[in-house]
């Protein structure tokens, strides 16, 4: 059952949640919206979307996996020791549905048929996400074309719709229900709030004009798509700078490195990595299976639009957030690339 939260009651609502959770939300920092720990006064809820995706909440840019000592006189020398993985319970208020959908996709990457990545999973389990539907999508958004949308619910525990004076908040999971049950400031919706919310969602969906056809990509074989002639053109302007992979909510490739932090002690860490780098794939022999820009650019798009759907029941590995479109320094537009793949 949905609840109503007057904007004037937001402080009480967030304050009551802060007793049980660390509350995070969109806040402005150096002129950009990012997700960070926030009180009600810090929340910037009239944003379009955060500059970078909030994937670092579950997959930090750099994360300690183990610690070790190389001092032979210490107990457990040369044996990796566990570090504390799980954050205290957290609640994110105001995540956009595209980003939550990205984490829904990544849940299926970090937990495959054989292995569960514990670093990802414990953070997901410890976090409640109350999404905020997009009343006004950006011109670069194309979420409906890839199977998601401005009010898409996958990956969220509850979804809020901004009705003007307040939010209509609908719980979607048990976790969301439980969080809302303990929160102050919520009232039963009055009048036709449900209908109003539905109309806002429909208008938002309608306002997205970018249409990107994807159907043919699924019927073509890997090799047909891989050998398509358009790759010879797409890569030419690419700088392999990796901005797209940095801001993308579904890009999840990582490196593992050992860092010796003092004379005898150190950490095994994992860091975001990028398929745009030649170092990503080079063999010890010097042979590189993806030696040039063409191979690397092709890999990124094929991974999202062909390989992930093949392996994850048709889910597309792009949620249409448009960040890479906005931030690519040479104006490579994923929508154009997908049109070429589908043509």
């Amino acid at each position: 059952m949905a609840k109503y939260l007057k904007k004037s009651d937001l402080a009480g609502f967030i304050g009551s949640l802060a007793g049980q959770y660390q509350v995070l939300g969109p806040v402005e920092k150096d002129g950009r919206v990012v997700f960070a720990p926030a009180g009600a006064a810090d929340l910037k809820l009239d944003f379009q979307n955060s500059h970078t995706s909030p994937k670092d909440l579950f997959f930090p840019q750099s994360e300690r996996m183990f610690q070790f000592t190389l001092d032979p006189n210490k107990e457990g020398a040369f044996v990796l020791q566990d570090v504390d993985l799980a954050p205290a319970p957290r609640l994110v208020f105001g995540m956009r549905p595209c980003d939550a959908a990205a984490f829904f996709v990544l849940d299926r990457v970090f937990k495959n048929d054989q292995f569960t990545d514990p670093y990802w999973q414990v953070k997901r389990d410890a976090t409640v996400i109350i999404g905020l539907g997009c009343n006004q999508p950006c011109p670069t958004c194309f979420c409906p074309s890839v199977g998601y949308g401005p009010f898409h619910e996958d990956g969220l525990d509850a979804i809020a719709t901004d009705l003007g004076d307040g939010f209509l908040i609908k719980p979607l999971t048990e976790k969301g229900q439980k969080a809302l049950a303990g929160a102050k400031g919520l009232t039963d919706p009055e009048g036709k709030m449900d209908e109003k919310a539905a109309a806002i969602a429909a208008a938002a969906q309608e306002s997205i004009k970018s249409e990107v056809p994807t159907r043919n990509i699924y019927t073509r074989t890997v090799m047909e798509l891989f050998n398509a002639p358009h790759w010879d053109r797409v890569f030419e302007s690419c700088l392999n700078c990796g901005t797209c992979t940095y801001v993308c909510p579904t890009c999840h490739c990582f490196d593992i490195q050992d860092e010796v932090t003092s004379a005898k002690d150190g950490d095994r860490v994992r860091n975001w990595d990028t398929c745009m780098s030649w170092l990503f794939t080079i063999h010890g022999t010097g042979h590189n299976p993806r030696p040039g820009k063409k191979e690397r650019v092709r890999q990124r798009f094929m991974h999202k639009f062909k390989y992930i759907p093949m392996k994850r029941g048709g889910l597309i590995g792009c949620v249409g957030c448009g960040r890479c479109v906005n931030l690519c320094p040479v104006n490579i537009d994923v929508r154009d690339v997908v049109r070429d793949m589908n043509a």
Partner: peptide, 24 residues
């Protein structure tokens, strides 16, 4: 096959050949 690998469990993304992870 051989490819550069890190995680070895089909997640980190570098060893894939098309949709298949060489490691998993």
């Amino acid at each position: 096959l051989e490819n550069r690998m890190k995680c070895g469990i089909g997640i980190c993304g570098r060893c894939n050949v098309g949709p298949e992870y060489v490691c998993k």
